[in-house]
Design a protein around this nucleic acid. Structure first.
Length: 291
DNA sequence: ATTCCAACCTGATAGC
DNA sequence: TGCTATCAGGTTGGAA
């Protein structure tokens, strides 16, 4: 689901629900792929703690705790972080959805995919983390502890200019699409926004990075920032699973130019949008507008 | 050093 | 209707 805009919208909307509230209990599912820190250690360490700030780097959320530890959250492909009182059909399996009467959908009931739950001393709404595919990550860092996952990240994609992309692209034979997905070049761009930014920059995703001009790199960097900023403004893209912490959908899916529009007419020129696999990812582009 | 690709999971859907 | 194959917003680690 989530790329930089969805993570940033999640951060902004969950922050007031999290910061300053003392954690009373932590409930988790059993140890699995998503728990880098074992679930029992999370439960033990987080009980009684208060979050002092919630930050973001790329697609990672980082909660600062009052004992100087940090809880790191990555939403993977299908992770959802939301308030207990959020309600959305995106929080339910399709089968569950159909089995419920409409009035029963109002309140979310934790299911087997709800891997992490915080309850607070103030008895207000809890915070839930749900992740069907378990590609998400939960990790508790000791004070000042480094972790390769975070250390590897480049600067946040909202801060990157064409110079950095140009330098990174020299002598790289990979498609420019692959470069944009590299989190060590810049952190936060994923499959949707890579395709959308390349459309705005009018550059074909399959172009070899080494053949980009400096000017094209400037256009790409500007397009990346513009697409990400606009998506944050509209609440992110709710195409499949993404839902904001308050249960609301984003609206950027209505502003897409190419992503998941295969065969549909380009809004600029009317040509059918193409899809092919580039860098092992489904990649969408306009064959006429993008050179 | 760079590039490729399987693996980690589950569910929705397209196709037969 | 039902089964099977394919695909999905991400990242890692190891092979080529």
């Amino acid at each position: 689901m989530p790329e930089l805009p969805e993570v940033e919208v999640t951060r902004r909307r969950i922050e007031p629900q999290l910061v300053g509230r003392r954690i009373r209990t932590v409930r988790t599912t059993a140890a699995s792929y998503l728990f880098i820190t074992p679930p029992e250690a999370l439960r033990r360490s987080l009980r009684g703690r208060t979050t002092t700030a919630l930050g973001r780097l790329g697609k990672y959320l980082i909660a600062e705790l009052d004992d100087r530890r940090r809880l790191v959250i990555h939403l993977g492909m299908t992770g959802q972080l939301f308030s207990q009182n959020a309600s959305s059909v995106r929080l339910l399996a399709a089968s569950t959805r159909q089995a419920l009467a409409p009035e029963e959908q109002a309140e979310f009931r934790p299911d087997e995919h709800t891997h992490f739950r915080l309850a607070f001393d103030d008895d207000g709404p809890g915070i839930y983390f749900r992740d069907v595919r378990k590609f998400g990550k939960l990790l508790l860092l000791a004070p000042d502890e480094q972790h390769p996952r975070l250390a590897r990240l480049g600067p946040d994609a909202l801060e990157v200019g064409g110079e950095r992309i140009f330098r990174a692209s020299r002598k790289r034979r990979v498609p420019v699409k692959q470069l944009l997905l590299d989190q060590s070049l810049m952190a936060g761009v994923g499959n949707i926004y890579a395709d959308e930014a390349l459309f705005l920059a009018r550059v074909r995703p399959g172009r070899r990075a080494e053949r980009l001009t400096r000017r094209e790199c400037d256009l790409i960097a500007a397009a990346v920032r513009r697409v990400l900023r606009r998506s944050i403004e509209t609440g992110g893209s709710s195409i499949r699973d993404y839902v904001a912490p308050d249960g609301r959908d984003g609206a950027y899916q209505f502003e897409r130019h190419v992503y998941a529009r295969e065969g549909e007419p380009c809004f600029e020129c009317g040509s059918a949008v193409c899809k092919r696999v580039i860098a092992q990812r489904g990649t969408h582009y306009c064959p006429k507008c993008q050179k």
